[in-house]
Design a binder for these strands. Structure first.
Length: 581
DNA sequence: GCCGTTTTCGGCCCGACTGTTTTCAGTCG
């Protein structure tokens, strides 16, 4: 049984326990365990083999036992019992906004409602308002909630949400009445997708700012507008919330609205043990309720005895412990990036000639870019035959002679064929500086087969980087069923770099596996996978993933200057050849 | 159900909002 399934069972268990009215702290224990399991990179089955389940934070004797049971029998007695007691259909009811465990239970106990359809029918027939705690308004809210669930609460890609937010924020920041301004929420943490955009400001004239923010020129619909909070729907259908807070509480509010929830809870628990209370209004001393911090995030972390934790790390994945012990990573910055290692030109499926791509990259201040057009078997992308690669090398050399202070590194994005062999002969690969090897076909191979296929490709001495290691497309296509732990270990053992593909739909590897790769000493390479000049601007999304994955400058190949990069690539190839023997 | 430089028992984050109440429970983020 996979981690995701076990986490899902624990989430469901938490919901069922909650409906049952069980101990809320027990409910939280299940939720926390599920969350921690979701951020593991190793399969529980392997951890169990070593007898180390209880070493996982949030997993004690009892849950370790339940995990073992699930691994061995694919069932959990406790969960099955719970399902007999509480109909599973209630799990979809509790997902309706406005319906919590108590009301869900009441609906079931008093009216036998256990499906969304039954709920809708009862609400429409006006049969709910006689239940204690229910009224006409509740019925209305439930119907709206059902609608919301059916439409599916979509998440927007970071790559779309961030530019959108930056545009809105630039407009606001231009107003003299706006003093401090920041995005908050999952957008500020740079999660790969976000549900809404939160913006926080301090202002000398909140009303005026609210008016500007909700102006019909800017938005499709105003959802709410008050003195300190307004919500709008943009023409893209994204909800944007603006909040105005007092300068004295700006830092506390920013920390609070940035989250994550799990991170905030940990901070508050810590504060409690120190005789302090943390809320969105500041840090207060228990004994006299005096506010001792709140203006800035920095002072909040400081007073809790922590180093300042960058937003991208605030997921309760060990950052608090690291901040406590003074060993937070010095995260890579966009300005550390010296070049782009994954780009396409008109030679395959890119939109621009080589020279234009190169000049755009130079304009960004990069000293180099790797040109990695597709290889022959990817017909749909007009992949290059060995002869064409040969010809392209010639053109690159020619353009390089014309460009001052800039270097195009000849490369390829070579297909990893079904059996793990490569789509171009070694003799050609040997003439290229950067070989990105990627899977673009036979995604459905089973775990063993596709893992072995990818690892075989990584063993090729000419393969520099494994491109988009999981092949996922956010909201469109699942990752192929690859054993990433094995791939990361193979990267370490073969000396192959792993790509962080910055394409907003990919962001592949993801943050969690970046962190794991770093732990195992694997170096990563950010590539934008640009097919147009404008896509060269996607680098910040790759950097965001890298930062969320705790990566530092030294963990990334393309933070090197050209000379060091060349040296590094040479060393890699030599070492890989040694190993092949 | 987890967890421990205050604890192996007794804790476990915090406040706002909503809709139903007549002082508050439930839900949310």
């Amino acid at each position: 049984m996979r981690n995701t399934e076990i986490a899902r069972i624990f989430h469901s268990t938490a919901d069922l326990l909650e409906i049952k009215g069980d101990n809320p702290f027990k409910v939280r224990a299940y939720q926390k365990a599920a969350q921690n399991i979701e951020s593991l990179t190793e399969e529980l089955s392997e951890i169990a083999l070593r007898g180390e389940l209880e070493k996982i934070s949030g997993i004690g004797k009892d849950l370790a036992q339940k995990i073992l049971e699930l691994l061995q029998t694919k069932k959990s007695g406790a969960f099955e019992e719970l399902r007999l007691e509480i109909p599973e259909g209630l799990l979809e009811l509790i997902a309706v906004p406005g319906l919590g465990p108590k009301k869900t239970k009441l609906l079931y106990d008093k009216m036998g409602i256990q499906t969304m359809e039954a709920l809708e029918e009862a609400a429409r027939a006006d049969r709910l308002k006689d239940l204690p705690g229910f009224g006409a308004k509740t019925e209305e809210n439930i119907l709206a909630g059902i609608e919301l669930v059916r439409r599916g609460r979509e998440r927007m890609l970071l790559g779309r949400a961030l530019p959108l937010a930056q545009g809105i924020m630039a407009n606001l920041a231009a107003m003299p009445e706006v003093h401090q301004i920041s995005e908050a929420g999952s957008l500020r943490r740079r999660r790969e997708t976000v549900r809404d955009i939160d913006i926080l400001i301090t202002s000398s004239d909140p009303e005026k700012v609210m008016d500007a923010f909700t102006s019909p020129f800017q938005v499709r619909e105003v959802l709410a507008k008050g003195g300190t909070k307004a919500s709008v729907l943009t023409s893209e259908g994204m909800q944007v919330d603006l909040r105005v807070v007092e300068p004295a509480t700006y830092g506390a509010a920013l920390a609070y609205f940035t989250g994550s929830k799990a991170h905030n809870i940990r901070l508050r628990e810590m504060a409690n043990r120190m005789g302090l209370k943390v809320s969105e209004y500041g840090v207060f001393r228990d004994k006299d309720q005096v506010r001792v911090a709140g203006k800035t995030e920095e002072e909040i972390y400081r007073i809790l005895g922590l180093l300042y934790i960058p937003p991208e790390l605030r997921e309760d994945r060990g950052e608090i412990e690291a901040a406590l012990e003074g060993r937070l990573p010095h995260l890579v910055e966009l300005s550390d990036i010296r070049g782009d290692l994954h780009c396409h030109s008109r030679w395959s499926d890119g939109a621009h000639p080589i020279r234009e791509m190169a000049e755009a990259a130079r304009k960004k201040g990069y000293p180099y870019v790797a040109l990695t057009d597709h290889s022959q078997s990817l017909g749909i992308a007009r992949g290059l035959s060995p002869e064409l690669v040969e010809k392209q090398i010639g053109e690159i050399a020619q353009v390089n002679r014309q460009l001052k202070g800039f270097t195009i590194l000849p490369g390829t994005e070579v297909d990893i064929l079904k059996d793990g062999s490569l789509d171009l002969p070694d003799a050609i690969l040997a003439r290229l500086s950067v070989v990105v090897a990627s899977v673009h076909s036979s995604f459905k191979q089973n775990r063993e087969v596709i893992t072995a296929r990818i690892i075989r490709a990584m063993r090729n001495p000419y393969v520099t980087i494994l491109g988009h290691p999981t092949g996922r497309l956010l909201g469109e296509r699942e990752a192929y069923d690859v054993d990433l732990e094995q791939v990361i270990k193979a990267a370490r053992d073969t000396g192959t770099f792993l790509e962080v593909n910055a394409y907003p739909q990919r962001l592949d590897l993801d943050d969690i596996h970046c962190k794991r790769a770093k732990e195992l000493g694997v170096t990563m390479a950010i590539g934008t996978d640009s097919h147009t000049i404008s896509q060269l601007e996607q680098m910040p999304f790759g950097v965001a993933v890298a930062r969320r994955g705790w990566l530092e400058r030294k963990n990334l190949l393309n933070t090197l200057n050209l000379d060091d990069l060349r040296e590094c690539l040479k060393t890699q190839r030599k070492a890989k050849k040694e190993k092949e023997k």
